[in-house]
């Protein structure tokens, strides 16, 4: 799975720590999400998308 978290974070001037605090997760979770190495639950995906003022499908892109 690919994500646009890093790009959207940069757009809003947010650090990984800022996003982690906003969503209520650990910083490592944001790192793994950005690298596409963790498939989040629907709730976490929703929270991340909301924090980045985007829709889930614009943040998380499924391969194939």
């Amino acid at each position: 799975m690919k994500t646009r978290i890093k790009e959207l974070r940069a757009r809003y001037g947010m650090t990984q720590e800022d996003l982690a605090r906003k969503v209520g997760v650990r910083r490592e979770t944001i790192v793994f999400l950005e690298q596409g190495k963790y498939n989040p639950s629907l709730k976490l995906a929703h929270d991340v998308a909301k924090a980045l003022k985007s829709r889930i499908e614009d943040v998380f892109i499924l391969d194939g």
Partner: peptide, 14 residues
């Protein structure tokens, strides 16, 4: 370190 930084000890992934 995490508690002082305002991060949870445990989240979905951990």
């Amino acid at each position: 370190r995490d508690l002082k930084g305002g991060f949870p000890l445990r989240d979905e992934r951990s």
